[in-house]
């Protein structure tokens, strides 16, 4: 592997593992019949959000700043979409905000390169 090797803090490891499990468990859910009923393009939109989140967690796992930036961007996009379809989940927001705070604590120690 190229680039700066930054030792990953235990908290980021735990967050990344929870994140991977969260995305993998929730990814099939975006293709559920109930989502398809909202709009033809809704599974595509939610699927793209989940896939981006998965990529963000890979970036966070490798201690890359782009992972954190991607996660925060996707968090806001996701919440806007969920608010529009009136499906916002308070627990998910709290968990995401907690993840973001933890990531930002270690943000400066992360690699700014791709």
């Amino acid at each position: 592997m190229q680039g700066a090797i930054v030792k990953r803090p235990r908290l980021i490891t735990i967050i990344s593992i929870i994140g991977f499990c969260w995305v993998i468990i929730s990814l099939p859910g975006v293709f559920a019949p109930s989502v398809k009923k909202i709009n033809d393009w809704m599974p595509a939109l939610l699927g793209a959000i989940r896939a981006s989140m998965f990529i963000a967690f890979i970036g966070i796992w490798y201690m890359k700043q782009w992972g954190v930036r991607l996660f925060i961007s996707i968090f806001f996009i996701k919440e806007i979409v969920f608010l529009l379809i009136d499906d916002s989940n308070f627990l998910s927001v709290i968990l995401s905000v907690f993840f973001i705070v933890c990531m930002l604590v270690y943000y400066k120690r992360m690699d700014p390169n791709l």
Partner: peptide
Amino acid sequence: SNVILGFTISILIGVVSGFVPAYTASQL
């Protein structure tokens, strides 16, 4: 809607399953 769903699923699976190998390649 089912055609869109089919293509969406296949593209997303491509993205999710291809990202780690692609990222590994980019960091060589």
